[in-house]
């Protein structure tokens, strides 16, 4: 901070101008975000909140784990998302005999050219649906999770980057667990969010029945944004202004999980980064050029809960990671206006 009042005034003036520009961009971001959500909602009815979270995940360059029973629209969500952003999508059905190369691709010797040629796998798409990921072998799961983190596939010493935007929407069925390989905690941490689609409510389900078949609807779904638009939205959200007290708030929330008596393992610093990244997108989606505590609070459960390991005693009491996160949010003071 400068001691010169004139310079201070000029700095304030410039900051105010920048804030006005950012507000305009945030408004455009919110407009685009709403258009995308409405577009997806044409096929995923009555799930606006889940759609919003999926979009936040996409624009945060994170990956989404959808934990739910079959038939609630997980794949449809991925297809609608990809159709709306004019992106490529791929679906991988995980089975115990699925090999890593079935996901990443393989190098085949080309006799004509006397050289190995890389044949890319389904992972090289903008949106990848990893269906029933817990049915794949740990080795295969690891291959997918490595790509999710590194955003490239390395075969024969050569790196093959995946396209941008890149998002994996993994699903798993929490009910039928026989013959599955549950994802280890370290790998769950790679997912930005875990959500549950849930059954549609009565009216939504009636509307689904009354409407045209989903397949036809998906085919007719118009693209709302191009990949360049999505890239710009991601870029804008990543530069959104975050006030100092909010960093402190995010760290307090995450740190509080590490000391919670119902938890065996709290959230990692990666959780803090993920929460902040997602909160930035939510703020921009609300038309704001700055983050507020509501953004952090609204995303804390989907971003943090799946990273926590509840103690067996707490589990017996029916406590879940989401309960613990809600506890923490109710205890950590929000960074509201300084006391006056």
């Amino acid at each position: 901070m400068t001691d010169n009042p004139a310079a201070h005034h000029a700095a304030n003036h410039a900051a105010n101008h920048a804030a006005v520009d950012a507000d305009a961009l945030a408004a455009r971001f919110a407009q685009m975000f709403a258009a995308l959500a409405q577009n997806i909602e044409r096929v995923i009815r009555g799930k606006r909140e889940k759609v919003d979270l999926a979009l936040v995940c996409l624009l945060s360059e994170g990956h989404l784990l959808v934990e739910d029973v079959p038939g609630v629209g997980k794949t449809t969500l991925a297809r609608a998302l990809s159709a709306s952003v004019e992106a490529q999508w791929a679906r991988i059905q995980f089975t115990p005999d699925l090999l890593p190369s079935d996901i990443t691709g393989v190098s085949i010797f080309n006799q004509a050219q006397n050289a190995f040629e890389f044949h890319s796998g389904p992972i090289f798409a903008n949106l990848v649906v990893a269906d029933e990921i817990n049915r794949g072998s740990p080795k295969t799961q690891s291959a997918l999770l490595e790509v999710m983190e590194e955003r490239r596939v390395t075969v024969e010493g050569a790196a093959h980057p995946v396209p941008r935007p890149f998002m994996v929407i993994a699903t798993q069925n929490p009910v039928d667990m026989d013959g599955t390989y549950p994802l280890p905690e370290a790998q769950l941490d790679r997912f930005l969010m875990r959500i549950s689609m849930g059954y549609p409510d009565h009216q939504a389900e009636v509307a689904v029945l009354a409407g045209m078949p989903t397949g036809q609807m998906l085919d007719r779904l118009p693209p709302v944004a191009g990949r360049e638009d999505v890239a710009r939205m991601i870029e804008f959200a990543s530069r959104l202004h975050v006030a100092g007290p909010l960093y402190d708030y995010v760290v307090r929330v995450v740190a509080a999980t590490r000391e919670h008596p119902d938890l065996r393992l709290g959230a990692s610093p990666r959780a803090s980064l993920a929460l902040l990244r997602a909160a930035r997108v939510r703020a921009a989606a609300a038309g704001r050029s700055f983050l507020v505590p509501e953004d952090v609070k609204a995303l804390a459960v989907p971003v943090i809960a799946h990273r926590l390991i509840v103690t067996p005693e707490a589990e017996l009491r029916g406590r879940t990671g989401a309960d613990v996160v809600n506890d923490v949010l109710a205890q950590v003071p929000t960074p509201q206006a300084a006391a006056v």
Binding site: A15, N16, A19, H241, R288, F290, P335, Q336, A337, A338
Partner: peptide
């Protein structure tokens, strides 16, 4: 107003 004042970039 409070959010913008407290967490926004401008004065």
């Amino acid at each position: 107003l409070v959010n913008r004042t407290r967490f926004g970039a401008g004065e």
